[in-house]
C-alpha cells in the first residue's frame, strides 16, 4: 500500500478542498493508500517514509522552506499541486513590488501601516519570535527542491487530482479527464 503525505505551504488550502471533491472516490483512495503526515488527519510530522508527497503553495517564509525540504527528504515522489506550488500563484505577486529598494519592508508597511484600510494605532508590525521569518521574495517550490510532477489548476479539479493520483499510485500513464487541464 502506498503512503501519501500532503501539506499546504503558502497556499489557501483550496487544493486540499479540491481533493475532497473526488467525493465518494475517497473511499477507493483509502483502499489504495495510507495517509501519513497531512492536515486531513492532523498528523504534524512524518511517521515513516512516504511514496508520494503532495505540495500545495509556495515558499514565503523559512518554515515553508523547512517543511518543503522535509517533504523532499521523506517522499520518493514530490508533486506540486496547484498554481501556487507551480509558479507562485497569488503569493508571488509580492515579487512584483518595486517602488522602493527594500520591497519586503515596503510590503510589510503597506500591509500593516500605510494602507488606507489599516487601523493600527500602535504602529506595530507583528514580530513575535514564534513567527517564522519571511523570505526576501516568494520562491516557487521548484526553486527550493526538485519537484517531479505538477498538477495545474487553481485549484485543480477533483477529477484531475483523481486521474493523476491514481496514475501515480498504479504506475500507469497519466490521462487527462474530460474538461482537461485549467490554470484557474
Amino acid at each position: 500500500m502506498k503512503r501519501i503525505a500532503t501539506v499546504s505551504l503558502a497556499g489557501c488550502f483550496g487544493c486540499h478542498m479540491s481533493l475532497l471533491d473526488i467525493d465518494e472516490r475517497i473511499i477507493d483512495l483509502m483502499k489504495l493508500v495510507e495517509f501519513d503526515r497531512t492536515p486531513l488527519n492532523d498528523l504534524k510530522s512524518f511517521t515513516r517514509r512516504c511514496d508520494i508527497g503532495l505540495i500545495e503553495g509556495s515558499c514565503c517564509n523559512e518554515e515553508n522552506v523547512a517543511t518543503l525540504r522535509e517533504f523532499r527528504r521523506q517522499c520518493d515522489t514530490l508533486v506540486g499541486v496547484g498554481q501556487c506550488a507551480i509558479m507562485g500563484g497569488l503569493p508571488v505577486m509580492r515579487n512584483a513590488i518595486m517602488h522602493s529598494d527594500d520591497p519586503l519592508l515596503e510590503c510589510l508597511e503597506e500591509a500593516y501601516l500605510n494602507s488606507r484600510l489599516v487601523y493600527n494605532p500602535t504602529n506595530d508590525m507583528p514580530n513575535d519570535p514564534a513567527l517564522p521569518l519571511l523570505l526576501d521574495k516568494v520562491y516557487i517550490c521548484s526553486q527550493v527542491v526538485k519537484i517531479d510532477y505538477v498538477i495545474p489548476g487553481c485549484p485543480p479539479s477533483g477529477d484531475l487530482l483523481w486521474s493523476v493520483l491514481t496514475a501515480l499510485i498504479n504506475g500507469t500513464p497519466i490521462t487527462t479527464p474530460p474538461g482537461g487541464v485549467k490554470y484557474d
Binding site: 523559512e62 518554515e63 522552506v65 523547512a66 525540504r69 523532499r72 527528504r73 514530490l78 527594500d102 519586503l104 519592508l105 510589510l108 514580530n127 519570535p129 514564534a130 517564522p132 521569518l133 519571511l134 523570505l135 526576501d136 521574495k137 520562491y139 521548484s142 526553486q143 527550493v144 527542491v145 526538485k146
Partner: peptide
C-alpha cells in the same frame, strides 16, 4: 533533491534586519 542554487541564509538576511532577530530554524 535540494536545489543548490537556493540560499536560505541569503533569503533571510533582509527579514533578519527588519525583524531584528535571528532565525529559530
Amino acid at each position: 533533491g535540494l536545489q543548490p542554487g537556493f540560499d536560505i541564509q541569503r533569503g533571510l538576511d533582509i527579514a533578519r534586519k527588519i525583524a531584528r532577530r535571528q532565525s529559530m530554524i
